[in-house]
Design a protein around this nucleic acid. Structure first.
Lengths: 225, 225
DNA sequence: ACAAAAGTGTTGCTACTACACCCATGA
DNA sequence: TCATGGGTGTAGTAGCAACACTTTTGT
């Protein structure tokens, strides 16, 4: 049986919320094809990669210096004409990051790495614009049915911070009373005896997400607003 | 950059509900590796496949004689040791079928093709048992949030038929009054002026799923029981 | 008349939406 | 004292779960 060889990449959609807006991490390509275009971080899988997940972790570190993050496989893209060099199947991954805690750094393959607001993306290489559109749809969905939003926040956060994450991703405002009621009633937040300081007005209570309490819930909660 | 070539397969999880139980379509391998084991239908993508979806359609026809069905990409598997022949990345697909309307037929690559109840699967080749476990989880989820269940039924069906599909996939019984109420209230079923005949007792009303009405719903309904 | 499955309503409860004001703090 | 965001309660509504009996048909 002729089994034509194909090249496989993993590409990462790394999202973060920054100043009330959703952003994605992109690298500027140094080489052809699509030299000087912005693209998703990622690359070919190697002999050493034990799993696709591991390959995604590795590529993210190599291309952007970002390590040790929540990563989840999203979808695979394999249309014939999507890469001018030949058949390339791309397995896309979703990463949820806290921008402030990272020090991004371009690899030698790239001439730059930067956060881009998803509402003002540059021209993108390959079919990466379509991949991002797909990822955004999935992300909206995910925060409504899973505790994924907490991966976009530091361990200690205020309810307002959490609400900002939801508003940035869903793209609309949420009534703060109902928002707080739903999360406080869900029983998955631990209130801390600390308040956020950096303000010149009333400090807000800090909370932590409790993975254990979430797992113990009889039914999965729904965070639809 | 050394881009090691990888082989890519598409494998299909073809489900159907038969006599109240959920079944999956498997083929018996004629050649090594895993000669004589049962496996998911599927195979390597070829130069001619324009898309991964098209490759899945093609493989399903070639290996089982099943054509023209609902197909949806599920997940990709690429652990290093999963195929003894070397690196193989498998893109899995979900197909939802009506067993009665199909005439399955083994290809020349296989020594058999058969429906297997998911509760009594045979020993399986590669990591196909894990792939099926994953697919089952996704299928349960899908019927609760999408109209996927209708793909497992003929165009005309009774409410009881529909309930049997839900019970087979979810694995528990459902109160029939609440079940009917939810579906009749959802506004996505068209009642026909026909009844099912084949019974020796009271005939049941037939219904059709209305794709258009489903699309027109302001919010997606939730079919959780 | 009987066996078998089709079909039907109500009640209590929970959870949601919509909505506007007072509170605590630092400057 | 003022500006700023933090924090709170209620009333009306909609949707859900739990529950058992009558109807229709063929034999």
């Amino acid at each position: 049986m002729a089994a034509p060889s194909v090249r496989v990449t993993v590409d990462i959609l790394a999202f973060a919320v920054h100043e009330g807006g959703l952003e994605i991490l992109l690298v500027k390509r140094k080489y052809d094809p699509f030299k000087s275009s912005w693209a998703l971080p990622g690359g070919f899988i190697t002999e050493k990669d034990e799993t696709l997940d591991a390959a995604a972790q590795r590529e993210l570190v190599e291309e952007t210096n970002v390590s040790n993050v929540y990563l989840e496989q999203l979808y695979s893209f394999g249309d014939k004409g999507r890469d001018p060099r030949g058949r390339v199947v791309t397995v896309s991954y979703l990463a949820l990051l806290q921008e402030e805690e990272l020090e991004i750094k371009a690899s030698s393959d790239a001439s730059g790495v930067a956060w881009w607001p998803v509402k003002e993306l540059p021209a993108l290489a390959f079919d990466h614009a379509a991949i991002i559109a797909y990822g955004l749809k999935r992300l909206k969905y995910k925060i409504e049915y899973t505790p994924a939003a907490f991966s976009l926040l530091p361990t200690k956060f205020t309810l307002r911070d959490l609400q900002i994450v939801y508003e940035a991703i869903l793209g609309h405002e949420i009534d703060n009373r109902n928002f707080r009621k739903k999360f406080l009633g869900a029983g998955i937040l631990r209130q801390l005896d600390e308040t956020s300081q950096e303000t010149s007005f009333r400090p807000a209570r800090l909370y932590e997400f409790s993975e254990q309490d979430f797992e113990k819930l009889p039914d999965r909660p729904v965070f639809i607003f």
